[in-house]
Computed example of a mutant assay.
Amino acid sequence: MNRTVPAAALAFAVGALLIAGGSYAHRGTPTWLLFVPLALTCAGVVVRTRAPLLCLGLGIVGITIDGFVGPSLGAVLIFTDNLYAAALYGPAGLTRILLGTTSVLAVGAGATAGFLAADWRALAVMGVQAGLVLVTPVLTAVYLREQRDRAAAERARAEQVARLAELDRQAAITAERTQMARELHDMIANHFSAIAIQSTAALSRQDLDRETVRKVMESVRENSVAGMAEMRAMIGLLRQEGDEAESETTRPRLGDADPLVERVRQAGMDVRTRVEGEPRELPPSVDLAGYRILQEALTNALKHGESPISVMVGYERDQVVLRVDNTLSADRRGGLPGAGAGLIGMRERAALVGGRFEAGAVDGEGWRVSAALPTTELNASPSRAWSDSAAEKKNAGGGR
């Protein structure tokens, strides 16, 4: 509004000067009548952006009156702005109608002039003039409108790409946090569970001799040092960049799981292990997943179970199979305490390498954890991953 009012006033002033200079068709009508259509077309300039349809209506009324009393050059020039504003700011359908209508009017005006004058030169002159007055403003508005719409579409596309990039970033952060939480849980829980159980036993038993207490404390110290060493290794791994982060020396291997079994034995549990098939080199992701699943299964058996614990590692043609069985302590048979982070982590690790995972009670008194991890690229696709949802729901209230 602040810009259109001065523009309309300026247009009226220029049109008045043109009328005063004689730029109109002299038909013997009073000169002051020429200011009426000029005022109407200038009124359309005032509302050109806020009400383009009204702008067009005022312009049509003004130019029609001007055609009877003039016409005047000023009203014609301002009417071109009325057409331009209606085509640019009005509905898209109106723009198409205006383009077709003005084209037909321009051709019709040229043909009529040529017929009445019986001269093709009159047709050409009138046709060009009508085209300049009617068609050119609309074509200009169509071009600018297309540019404006294209720019708006580009902005919307850029905003969408930015939103998708932000969603990808958040998903990557969530995945990294989940992986870090899983690694921390698997590393720390095993050592701290052994420390808690051994220290509790040492504190609750008053009949232990000095040598037995010393052995327990040595085991506690060994688990503490091992836990700290793994924590330092993980921190160092997180600080590395690029290919250095894939260092083979820092990756736990399923074939190096003997210390896991030994720590459980030192905590007072009877662990029986057996290996079926010929041990072989496994893909790094499968090797790490198998090690962590075995580590968490032994930790859960240590916290919630009783001796004996049976561990089986089977190397088959296309997969490696892990199975850990233990007897539940009497106070755990009604349901296992905990938030279920261990079961969730094991299930996630198996799914990430396209494997299968099951965990649940066996015969009411035992607990079994089993996992089958593919060792070929075809079978290791995550799309083949599945989990026992029934067992998950059964144990969701008391996962280990």
Rank of each mutant, 00 (worst) to 15 (best):
R3M: 13
A16I: 09
L18Y: 02
G21T: 05
S23V: 05
A25P: 00
A25N: 06
G28N: 12
P30V: 11
T31V: 13
T31E: 14
W32L: 15
L33Y: 11
A39R: 01
V45S: 03
V47N: 02
T49Y: 12
L54T: 15
L54C: 11
C55G: 10
L56Y: 04
L56S: 06
L58P: 02
I60A: 13
G67N: 10
L77C: 12
F79Y: 14
T80K: 03
D81Y: 08
L83A: 07
A85R: 01
A87K: 00
A87N: 02
G90S: 12
P91D: 03
R96I: 10
S103C: 09
L105W: 12
A106W: 01
A106L: 03
G110Y: 00
T112N: 04
G114Q: 06
F115Y: 14
L116E: 10
L116T: 15
A122I: 03
A124K: 06
M126D: 02
V135Y: 00
T140W: 03
V142G: 00
Y143K: 06
L144A: 11
R150A: 15
A152S: 13
A152V: 09
R155L: 15
R155H: 08
A156I: 09
R157Y: 12
A158Y: 04
V161G: 02
A162F: 13
L167C: 09
Q170T: 15
Q170W: 12
I173A: 12
A175I: 08
T178R: 14
D186W: 01
A189L: 06
N190R: 07
H191G: 07
A202L: 15
R205T: 13
Q206H: 14
D209Y: 13
T212D: 04
V213L: 15
K215R: 14
M217P: 00
V220M: 06
V225N: 05
A229R: 09
M234F: 13
L237E: 09
R239G: 14
Q240E: 15
Q240T: 14
E241T: 12
E241G: 03
G242R: 08
E244V: 12
T249A: 15
R251C: 01
D258P: 01
R263I: 08
R263S: 07
M269G: 00
V271L: 06
V271E: 02
V275Q: 04
E276Y: 09
E276Q: 11
G277E: 10
E278N: 05
E278Q: 10
P279G: 11
E281K: 14
D287A: 03
D287Q: 06
L288R: 09
R292V: 07
L294Y: 06
E296K: 05
E296H: 13
A301Y: 02
K303M: 04
K303I: 12
H304M: 11
G305H: 00
M312S: 06
V313T: 12
G314W: 00
Q319Y: 01
V321T: 10
L322M: 10
S329E: 08
G334V: 07
L336K: 05
A341W: 01
G342T: 01
I344V: 14
G345P: 00
G345V: 00
M346A: 10
R347H: 03
A350C: 10
L352I: 06
E358G: 06
A359L: 05
G360K: 01
G364Y: 11
G366A: 12
W367K: 01
R368L: 05
R368C: 06
P382Y: 05
S387A: 11
D388K: 02
A391F: 05
K394P: 00
A396H: 09
G397F: 08
G397C: 05
G398R: 08
G399P: 05
